[in-house]
């Protein structure tokens, strides 16, 4: 099996704050890989470093066999796309869904736009009726579906998901998670997913890395986690917390 994303000794420094302190991971092709941690663990920073949104101080990132430099070329963005956490902030307030979906096609000079837009909207379960709406005419779940459609329209092989459901209601979260699973199965995508919620990561991912303070705590398979076969106290704490409140 080939690897999709390899990260080695990645350091990210903002001003003088070290957000990532030498993190390494390997995501295989077609795999769904999770990053779990609390705020400040550096899990989102890792995603942003891969996309070029966070400044890499040292370390290497290899995506689909290509070592990434300081800048990313257009071809990179056809391979790697991202879905953001906040559906209210990730859609341009003055653009219709149609315009949002056309933009990536225009940037990459893709001709069969009409067909792709209709297909993408169908695929995320929105259909034609949503094509000419503005973001403020959509609910949170619908917005996140549009964001997913926008990420898929360039037909990437890797999707980076930054807490894609944490701003949604539980029932809408279930719908979006199901959609993501379905899309992944159909398009044979590789997922790298960030969440603070262990339950979501074990539901969505085969392997995962627990992070804390910009460092990896441990790497586990989902079944190891479900069977509580973990070696670090911190992971155990997270597991306990995910089971809800227990009165002593």
């Amino acid at each position: 099996m080939t690897t999709s994303i390899t990260v080695e000794g990645l350091e990210v420094v903002f001003d003088r704050f070290r957000a990532l302190k030498g993190v390494s991971l390997e995501v295989r092709e077609g795999e769904s890989y999770g990053l779990v941690g609390e705020s400040g663990s550096g899990k989102s920073t890792l995603l942003r470093a891969i996309t070029g949104l966070a400044p890499v101080a040292s370390g290497t990132i290899i995506v689909n066999g290509k070592t990434l430099g300081k800048t990313r070329d257009k071809a990179f963005y056809r391979d790697v796309q991202m879905v953001f956490q906040d559906p209210y902030g990730s859609l341009h307030p003055r653009q219709t869904v149609d315009r949002l979906l056309q933009e990536p096609l225009a940037i990459h000079g893709i001709a069969d736009g009409e067909k792709r837009i209709e297909r993408a909207l169908d695929e995320v379960g929105l259909g034609k009726g949503f094509r000419f709406r503005y973001a403020h005419q959509l609910s949170g779940g619908q917005r996140q579906r549009v964001a997913i459609a926008r990420a898929l329209i360039l037909e990437p092989s890797i999707l980076l998901l930054d807490e894609p459901t944490s701003a949604l209601d539980a029932s809408v979260q279930a719908e979006v998670l199901n959609l993501l699973e379905e899309v992944r199965r159909r398009r044979k995508l590789t997922f790298l997913m960030v969440s603070h919620d262990l339950a979501i990561i074990t539901h969505m991912c085969e392997r995962l890395m627990v992070m804390q303070n910009g460092q990896a705590v441990e790497t586990l398979t989902a079944s190891q986690l479900i069977g509580h076969r973990v070696s670090e106290d911190y992971t155990r704490n997270l597991l306990r917390a995910s089971e809800g409140f227990v009165r002593v």
Partner: peptide, 13 residues
């Protein structure tokens, strides 16, 4: 710094 501008950056614009 809003996500919707970042999203366009990630389109390769």
């Amino acid at each position: 710094n809003s996500d919707y501008i970042k999203a366009v950056q990630l389109m390769g614009a």
